[in-house]
Simulated assay, not measured.
Amino acid sequence: MPDPLGLLRTAYGDLSGTLSSLTVEEGWVPTGCAGWTPVDLGFHLLSDARRALVALNTPSPARADTTAVDYWTAWRPPAPGDDEELWSTRIAASVHGGLPGIAARYAETSAAVLVAAERVRADDLVRTQGRVLTVADLLSTLTVEAAVHHLDLVAHLDRPGPAAEPLGEVRLVLEGLLGRRLPAGWGDVTAARRGTGREPLTDADRAGLGKDAGAFPLFG
């Protein structure tokens, strides 16, 4: 079984390296998140790393009510025309010094998350976004978030994507949500993109999935 902290260390390290490698000009190209540039996406990633740091320092006496899989049931792609998050992210990102400033803050914050994760046990319970889950499950959610957004970041750039191990975790979560294996012909990148609605299902996909095709996207 993959080590949750090891997976997150890989996901964060690779993503931070890619984000830091982008030029100022590359900060304004499209990404795999409709309407978002790397500047916007970088700020979103920074916010998520900050949330992770808070979560790892927020122990909970309550019993776990969320797992690494069902955490994602609340996250659906935005409806067409729903620009509220786009604009709030753009405004917030604009005061963080552009892409270089955001990338530097992400690097130090994500590194701090990894240190904090080393100081707790995998079965400790923590709270985030009103839910309680184990540290191991929290780290899985952070790995999945980082891997999917790493794919978004490089969608229109000549940069390496996420490593195989974090992408494998994305696939496991998607299959957990679907309740069955994803099509064997899908590589992990395809699984991540189609499973989250970033790439449409083909007619052959729909035929192979049958009634399960209606569950897509599994999260967004």
Rank of each mutant, 00 (worst) to 15 (best):
R63S: 14
D65N: 15
T66S: 05
T66Q: 13
T66P: 01
W72I: 07
A74H: 12
A74E: 13
R76C: 05
E85N: 08
I91F: 01
A92Y: 01
V95A: 14
L99E: 03
P100D: 05
G101K: 12
S110W: 05
A112G: 14
V113Y: 05
E118V: 06
V120R: 15
V120T: 15
A122R: 13
D123S: 14
D124V: 11
V126Q: 01
V126P: 00
R127D: 02
V132I: 13
A136W: 04
A136T: 12
D137G: 13
T141E: 03
T141G: 06
T141H: 01
L142I: 00
T143L: 03
V148Y: 00
H150I: 10
L151Q: 11
L151T: 10
L157M: 07
L157H: 12
P160D: 11
P160F: 13
A163M: 01
L167I: 12
V170W: 01
V173T: 14
V173N: 08
L174T: 14
E175M: 09
G179W: 06
G179E: 10
R180S: 15
L182G: 11
A184Y: 09
G185Q: 08
G187H: 06
G187K: 07
V189R: 14
A191H: 12
R193V: 02
T196V: 13
G197A: 06
R198I: 03
A204L: 15
D205H: 05
A207S: 13
